[in-house]
């Protein structure tokens, strides 16, 4: 029965060339890989592309509460207040300072492709102040260090993060209207600026 069906099929329709099918499968795999790898490069809807026009360079900006009329990104949690800084360290290091007064607070650095290169969260029992120095990922000479120029070494302990461009985000849980002024006061302490050489 099966052989007769096969014979009928091969009589009516020519079987595709096996070499062509194998070549097509290989080409399919290559196209699959190329498409997947190039999506982040050509996507115009990345979070960085959406936020870039809203944020000044190397300046911390507190975003208004997220509402349906003011939602800069899809799926952005509205019960969090955001302070953002679009950093660019190509011209020199960028210094980011943030105070995380408690539980739920976080500071994160996101690259234009969305990768988290640094993240820290607030603790339950104490306020944490973070000082970050963002330097370009590639090797670059920015002049002599303060010590080499005979100046005192800065007393604040700073963490160095290698990242050329991206967005620093401070997330603060919004506990409601009554707490809003306290949260905004804490967010106002955040700073993002280009450092002199």
């Amino acid at each position: 029965m099966m052989t007769s069906v096969f014979r009928w099929l091969t009589k009516k329709f020519r079987l595709p060339n096996l070499r062509i099918v194998l070549a097509a499968l290989c080409a399919m795999g290559i196209l699959h890989i190329l498409t997947t790898l190039t999506v982040p490069l050509f996507s115009v809807t990345t979070a960085f592309a959406r936020l870039e026009p809203l944020l000044p360079v190397n300046e911390m900006k507190i975003l208004p509460p997220v509402t349906p009329d003011a939602q800069p990104l899809p799926f952005l949690t509205p019960d969090v207040r955001y302070a953002m800084c679009r950093y660019d360290s190509t011209g020199g290091p960028v210094r980011v300072t943030a105070v995380l007064p408690g539980r739920g607070w976080s500071l994160a650095l996101h690259t234009p492709s969305g990768e988290n290169v640094y993240a820290a969260t607030g603790r339950d029992d104490r306020s944490t102040t973070l000082h970050l120095r963002i330097v370009p990922a590639e090797e670059r000479f920015f002049g002599l260090s303060p010590e080499a120029r005979g100046m005192a070494r800065p007393t604040t302990r700073m963490q160095t993060v290698e990242s050329t461009r991206g967005i620093a985000i401070i997330r603060a849980p919004d506990k409601g209207q009554a707490y809003r002024h306290i949260i905004e006061a804490d967010l106002l302490q955040a700073d993002c600026r280009s450092e002199p050489f």
């Binding site: 999506v39 990104l73 990768e115």
Partner: peptide, 23 residues
């Protein structure tokens, strides 16, 4: 930072900016 290409492409297209799954 060690995300696979599918995850990178998914979030580039989605346009979201969430914390890393480490946190």
């Amino acid at each position: 930072s060690d995300a696979d290409p599918y995850t990178r492409a998914h979030f580039a297209r989605a346009g979201t900016l969430n914390l890393s799954t480490e946190l």
